[in-house]
Design a binder for these strands. Sequence first.
DNA 1: TATGGAAAAGTGGTCGAACCACCCGATCAC
DNA 2: GTGATCGGGTGGTTCGACCACTTTTCCATA
Lengths: 254, 254
Amino acid sequence: MARAAATFQPIRNQNISETLAAQIRKEILRGTYKPGDRLPSERELALAFGVNRMTVREALLKLQALGLVSIRQGAGVEVQSYRDTGKLDLLIHLLTTPDAEGRYDARALLSLVEVSRTLYLQAVELAFERMKPEDTAKILELLDRQITLVDDPDAFARNSVAIHKTIFTAAHSITLRLLFNTLQEIFESESSPFRAVIREELRGVEHERLLGWFRQVRKCVEKRDVAAMKKLVETVYQPENRRLFAEFVAKKTF
Amino acid sequence: MARAAATFQPIRNQNISETLAAQIRKEILRGTYKPGDRLPSERELALAFGVNRMTVREALLKLQALGLVSIRQGAGVEVQSYRDTGKLDLLIHLLTTPDAEGRYDARALLSLVEVSRTLYLQAVELAFERMKPEDTAKILELLDRQITLVDDPDAFARNSVAIHKTIFTAAHSITLRLLFNTLQEIFESESSPFRAVIREELRGVEHERLLGWFRQVRKCVEKRDVAAMKKLVETVYQPENRRLFAEFVAKKTF
DNA sequence: TATGGAAAAGTGGTCGAACCACCCGATCAC
DNA sequence: GTGATCGGGTGGTTCGACCACTTTTCCATA
């Protein structure tokens, strides 16, 4: 009954427009189309892909929402420099799309970790200040569950995301919450190097040390000890715990 | 020649689909449709608005991208709780859409200021560590220009955004850059209470004090003095400089 | 009576063709 | 050179139809 379900989840309905968007997005991020270039017209793309123009339109609108292209009636679809106009939703694609040489951008991943650390520290600070009894209860419950999951990497990762989400929720800051929602898919995505690096690093940590860390977190939450909690968070980001990550970044791409 | 242009910029092409999206979005944020409710079918909406179903589809896709609704083939369009699924792009709409009683959400604005402060401090820290000669030059140039604009609130605000953008760029962190891009429209939006509050607060500050602040910033940039710079940034967020803002927030909504 | 499953109705997804609104470059008249 | 005009190409919108999927209904069956 309480046993975790088998987590079926293979099927995914491949929207044609989403498939198209992914394909074009990939070409742009790989550099096939450079900023300033004009994409083929909707009619040409429809012909080339063998789909209806409406479907192409929907795909292009998605790229526009990401800030990858600008669409102007009369003029065509122009590729933009994503550094100048890209939205945060683009980040997951930057992390999961290899460049022309098949390598992933390690500096992008580093920048995400840097910002995550900052946001996490702020979330902790606000949460410990504002959280309500039900918030505390839920965090404690998830922490207790986390300790039982050290042997199941996937369940561990999922519960970990749930803990973070609860902390961000407890901060009662809509901006932080929306930010978390936007970044969440990166943490959850299987194809994201983020998950891969985390999993690899966890492999090198002894169970007992990991359990100890979570027990300490639990104490902090119970006592509402912000300072101690922040220190605990910081330890996660300390260089000695980021060995593999540092190696990746040292190579710039991986 | 070097005189600032008159900054014409009124015209804006109102896509029908964007107009539709705005209208439906407004109803959702006002609470006319609550999480779990189903929106009228695409055919019904098309009939009601007197437009084609395709146009309705595009509007709904935009709302889906914001995380406001979930669309499933066969089932309809379901309104979601934006706290759980909303993306960061939704924030500007939360700030600019009044509730059923015509008031704006001051807590949302407060949360944005809190997060902005944190991100800004991190951007400064990274920028001062990584910025290249051309970054420094551009920042100094914009700072010099800023000092000449104290009498023109609009130009002042615009140049201010440009300065922030350059600092975020100098941080050479793609995550921070995309984050800035996503939040930028809030800072620039005329209909955003953000601009209104900033303008109101600036009105109460003596020119000489404002100029002094920017001169100090300039020195920090020249000497790459991170600590001093961060202190300067902090002064902006100190309570005594947030009087009006605090009053707004105290009323919860305004 | 409870259950399983087929049928029906309603939903979003895709299609094709046509027309409208707009941008841009070529051409022309001055 | 300058400005106006025009035509071709682009995205924006419309229409009507069909496909794929979900939900509901309801009937045959155990």
